[in-house]
């Protein structure tokens, strides 16, 4: 009995120490990526190639999800608002929820599972097949050549994807609210414009998605770089990327929201 308790305590301690150690290692890795970023911009075509893989190829899923989320918001929002006779506020509801929260957060979650997991798997496999080692032996820094361009590509793609998600979402809400249900078009747009502030809402949404982009790509790259060079190791790392970045996005969203919209 006592023995089991001791083993349990020891296990917990071990996990805590391990977690702190990994966090420190991850921070050092992140710092190294930032310090070795000059090549990503000097030879920008390296970054462009990665924007294609993480940004352009994520477009379809982002646009389709955005449209549907906007349409659902239109339907649900109308159901609720018409009880209070204020269907004209539908535009406000759709736009504010998309621009402030759903756009950045949902786009980030989709990005984590679409692009983040791919980054982890790619880096993990490059390590497992000694491609990273080979690069080091050729006197090319893999952090600068492989990791940093993927990082900056993610940071550039994320806010653009989130903005497209929100814009298609608003369009989806418009389709349902105005075209299908018949809310007055003028009221839909004017109430929306009266309530949505460019700096407070749109820019804060963009800032949020930039932060999410940094978090997701940093997590994905670290997990890939740190993955044990086996099939099992890479698959675990990919799972961890999706889970960790989803949690990170939600936690960061709470913190950022608390800072940004506290005055309301």
């Amino acid at each position: 009995m006592l023995e089991r308790a001791i083993t349990g305590i020891r296990g917990t301690g071990h996990r805590v120490v391990n977690g702190v150690w990994r966090l420190g290692y991850a921070s050092r890795f992140f710092l190294a990526v930032l310090l070795h970023s000059s090549m990503s911009f000097r030879r920008f075509h390296l970054t462009i190639k990665e924007i294609y893989f993480s940004g352009v190829l994520s477009l379809i899923i982002i646009l389709v999800s955005g449209l549907f989320v906007g349409m659902v918001l239109g339907l649900q929002g109308y159901e609720t608002l018409q009880k209070y006779g204020s269907e004209s506020a539908l535009g406000t509801l759709v736009a504010l929820s998309l621009v402030r929260e759903l756009g950045p957060v949902l786009a980030a979650l989709l990005f984590a599972s679409r692009a983040g997991s791919a980054i982890t798997a790619e880096i993990g496999l490059m390590k497992a097949t000694e491609q990273i080692s080979a690069m080091e032996m050729m006197a090319v820094d893999p952090i600068a050549r492989v990791v940093a361009p993927r990082f900056w590509a993610g940071v550039i793609s994320m806010p653009l994807l989130a903005a497209m998600f929100s814009a298609t979402g608003v369009f989806g809400g418009y389709l349902i609210g105005v075209v299908l249900i018949g809310v007055d078009e003028g009221q839909f747009w004017s109430q929306m414009q009266a309530a949505v502030d460019f700096r407070q809402d749109v820019m804060n949404g963009v800032i949020k998605s930039c932060v999410f982009g940094v978090a997701i790509t940093a997590i994905a790259l670290f997990e890939g770089y740190d993955a044990p060079p086996t099939a099992e190791g890479v698959s675990h790392a990919t799972t961890r990327t999706v889970v960790t970045s989803a949690l990170a996005v939600l936690a960061l969203d709470f913190i950022l929201t608390a800072f940004m919209f506290r005055g309301l």
């Binding site: 000694e130 491609q131 080692s133 080979a134």
Partner: peptide, 9 residues
């Protein structure tokens, strides 16, 4: 250096 399985990109 030649790696065990080539390590081609």
């Amino acid at each position: 250096m030649l790696f065990q399985f080539g390590a081609l990109y």
